[in-house]
Design a protein around this nucleic acid. Sequence first.
RNA 1: GGCCCUAUCGUCUAUCGGUUAGGACACAAGCUUUUCAAGCUUGGAAGCAGAGUUCGACUCUCUGUAGGGUCACCA
Length: 476
Amino acid sequence: MSQEKQIVTRFAPSPTGFLHVGGVRTALYAWAFARKHGGRFILRIEDTDKAREVEGSITHIIESLTWLGIDWDEGVDIGGPHAPYLQSKRLESYKKYANILIEKGYAYPDPYSEEEIAELRLKAEQEKRVFLFRDHRPETIGTWDGTKPLRFKIKEIKESRWHDAVRGELHAGPEALDDFILIKSDGYPTYNFAHIIDDLEMGVTHIMRADEFIASVPKFLALYEALSITPPILVTLPPILGAEGTKKLSKRDGAKDILDYRNEGYVPEALVNFLAFLGWNPGGDKEIMTPREIIEAFSIEKIHKSGAMFNEEKLLWMNKEHIRKQGDEVQLSQIKKFMPQYGDELLKKLRPLIVDRISFYGELLSVEQEEFRLFLERPVPVPEKLIWKDTSKEKTIEYLTNVLTRIQEGSSGTPDEVKSCIMPYADTEGRGNVLWPLRVSLSGKEKSIDPFSLIAYLGKEESLARINSAIGALKA
RNA sequence: GGCCCUAUCGUCUAUCGGUUAGGACACAAGCUUUUCAAGCUUGGAAGCAGAGUUCGACUCUCUGUAGGGUCACCA
């Protein structure tokens, strides 16, 4: 057995706000791949754009990943052998490699002002030409004092060809190569430069990222070449599309803060499951999978090339399936969060009923909670609602009275027990005739949970009181 | 506009030249504790178009079409 090189992947978000589903999926694939092969997964923060930085982002990112059960072996918060993992703390590294590039003639200071470049760009546009900075390289190269941007010099203008683990053989024309900025005038490196240095120093073997970076790969390749680096394996992930049309997922179509899902009572395993399947499929019919199973089944070969729409309904369905996989205690603690005014004992009884009716726990805050309010408040009987179709008032009173006796005499611990003492009677008198008024007298509603469950969970005493109250209302 | 990527039911997908093109979500119908929800059963629903390669193409090639990405001192 040959010793395989350890796999190292990373997730490297910029701290510019919350983490949304797109970012999470990238992290998920990189993590799953590393875990599957016993490799290392790194959390690096790419904070080189100080203007766009949003305070609290890093904490937020960490919290999001942690909630989802995505863990890392090295990273900003826990350190590791390649610390620091914050790009703004790694400026010395970038400077070191920048100097190497300058020495080798691969980098030069950009003498233009931003206005001058904008002008050149505008002119090119007017003449319907592609603007390429390399057409305007300065005649004489000055020394870089750090106040001007440092540009990479493309020495060989050529067509680029490379291999992508998902897309296969890719290529791009020579116009994809231009003198791009390595280090900005504020001293911070650009993504294009920094990620390459970091990946090198951190030993990253596989780069997972979305397909908007394909167009930049030729530049990365030129840089790898200039530094004599063997590029990591490139793994391009398909885009996640919004439900509205075919555009990339935007906030409007569901690219919301991943922690919102937590707050709305989604199951993290469900989100992991759903996101894993947006752009990857292990084959076969099994769709509900635990994170463990996903890791086990994960392979780059099964990552898709084409984009997938974010389908809220399917997520809802998956979440429901995952709720059902949760243990009673977990379910109960989640339910308590959203129905605090219900007593613990009552919720314990109602749990199976509740779990059956929701797709995510947050539903309990609005619509679904209405269903259960009847357990807290006794309904006021409305005679007209109590009568089934064209049954008479007298008959309805008779049915309810008879049911009353049966409940009194029978056992009512579980819905099934209740059912067994009422159904024979309902069958002889007509199910609708008996069951409808019974259910409405208990719930006060035309649409509700079935009568047997109501009796079992309301308890014998309360059930009898409600039925009596209904009979009273009918007689009045 | 230049460059690049993608293309199977409405949606997510299986198929790696030979299948009645399978599954899931959603939808519809039926069944069940004549309601609601859940559940179960059943059903409708797809290879972008045109050439070519081949005994045989959803699968390979080309062209077209459509959609997407990218052309920053953002990542």
